[in-house]
Amino acid sequence: MNVLEIIFYALSAFALVCAIMVLISKNPIHSVLWLILVFFAISGHYILLNAQFLAIVNIIVYAGAIMVLFLFVIMLINVKKDSEPQKQLFVKLIGVIAGGSFLTLSISLVKQAMPLVGKTVPLKEGTIGLIHPLGKALFNDYVVPFEISSVLFLSAMVGAVLIGKK
């Protein structure tokens, strides 16, 4: 077991624990903070995969912008710990069972997937995660979706203004 693997397991375990904490935290603020930690762990994974650009973008966009917005909204409307009405235990149980069965089902499917056997993910190698190749690809092959995503933003902007206006 080399260092990279140790890092992989550590990051994964950390991410999973944090994700579970997101779920079980009573206080929404704590949930947000745990989620930020999850994002950091995932960014760590990206770095491990040498996807530096995505790692940084993940932090900037998710941890830096999106989660700030979440935190912002939660603080703004001041959701208290106790104000969230809890679902019935039964419903919760069903939810957990559903999620768990989804997990087991998909994992068992993946286990059977023969073409994946023996395929590995090279860690800390490769240059495709760096900004140069990504930029090239983005503005050559993917320029159409890139432009089109601006439409998405326009509509989101119009919508946010529309909804936010008094």
């Binding site: 999973l16 994700a19 579970i20 997101v22 779920l23 969230e84 679902k87 419903v91 919760k92 069903i94 939810g95 957990v96 559903a98 999620g99 768990g100 989804f102 997990l103 998909s106």
Partner: peptide, 10 residues
């Protein structure tokens, strides 16, 4: 799946 469980239970 943790995400899915969260969507279903919270």
């Amino acid at each position: 799946s943790i995400g899915v469980v969260g969507v279903l239970t919270r």
